[in-house]
Amino acid sequence: MTIFNTALSKPWIWSWLAALATFVLTVLFTGGASTFSLGQATLTFAAFSVIVGLGQMLVITLGPGNVDLSVPATITLSGTLALKFMNTDASLILPGLLVAIGIGLGVGIANYGLIKLLRIPPIIATLSMSFLVQSLAIWSNRGLRIKPPDELSAFTTGMTLGIPNIAVVGLTLSVAIWWLLDRSIYGRWISAIGQSPFAARMAGIPVDGTRFLTYVICAVLAALCGYLLACFSGGAALNMGAEYLLMSIAVVVIGGSAVAGGNSNVPGIWGASLFMFLVVSMLNTYGFGAGIRLMLTGLIIIAVIIAASRRVSAR
C-alpha cells in the first residue's frame, strides 16, 4: 500500500498510466494482432519527442517565461545542413554529427545572446531566432532532397535486440539528462533559478552562466534530433520540425514537470511521449475522422493534465 501511495505521489505516474491505458485499449481493439509492431513504432517516434522534450524541459525548469520556440527551426536546419554536408558519403557520418551539434551550439548561443544582450523575453527572442534559422534552412535547402548515407539510414531505422536504435539513443540521452537534473550541481542550480532567480543569485549561483548553458543544451538536443530524424525519414524536409514545437512543450507539461519551473522530471517525458504517439494511433485504429481525432486528442490531454496537477513538492 505504501509503495502504491509513493508511486501515486510521483508527478510522472499519470503520464505512464495514461500511456499504458491507451496501449491496452489499442491492442484490445486490434485483438493483439499488431502489438509488437505498434510497440516498436511507438518507441521510435516517442524517442524523437523525448530528445527534444528533454531540452525543452531543462529550459522550462528555469522558471516563468523560459521556453525555446526555435526548436523546430533548429531541427530543420540541422537535418538539412548535416545531410548536405555528408552528401551520402559514409565516411562523413561523424563529421556530419559534429556539424549538427555545431549548429545547435550556434543557435543556443545566439538565443541567449538575444535574451541577454537585447533584453528580449525568451519567448520573443527564440521565436525571432527561429525565423532566422528557418530562412537559413530554406536558403540552403533549395528543394534538394539529399539522401542520408546508407549506413546511417540503416542505423536509424534498425534495431538492436528488438529495440529500435533511436529508442536506445533516446534512452541514453535521458539517463544523461536525468543525472544532470537529479544528481549534478547544475541540476540544483536550474531548479533554484526556476523557484526564485533573485534568491539563486544571492545564494551564489551563477544565474546567467547556468541559463546560458541550458539554452545551449536545449538547442544541441534539438539539432541532434534533426540529424537523426532526417536520416530516419530518408532526407530533410522543410517542415520536418513543425510538429515538435507543441510536442516538445506538451511532453514536459503532461509529464508532470511544473510549468512554472523549478520542479521537473525525466521519466514523465518518456511517459508523455509514448502517450502522445499512442493516442493518435489509438484514434486512428478506431477509424475516427481527422476532426474528431484532434478534438479527442485535446480532451484526453486536458484530462491527463488535470489528473497530474495534484502537485507534490520535490523532496
Partner: peptide, 29 residues
C-alpha cells in the same frame, strides 16, 4: 560574485532578511 562563472564560496555569503524575496526556495526541502 560572478553571474556567469561558478562562484568561489570562500569569498562572500549573504543572509536574507526578506526570505520570500531573496532567501528561500519554496519547493525545496
Amino acid at each position: 560574485s560572478s553571474n556567469w562563472l561558478p562562484h568561489r564560496p570562500d569569498e562572500i555569503a549573504f543572509v536574507a532578511g526578506d526570505r520570500a524575496l531573496n532567501g528561500t526556495f519554496p519547493l525545496w526541502s
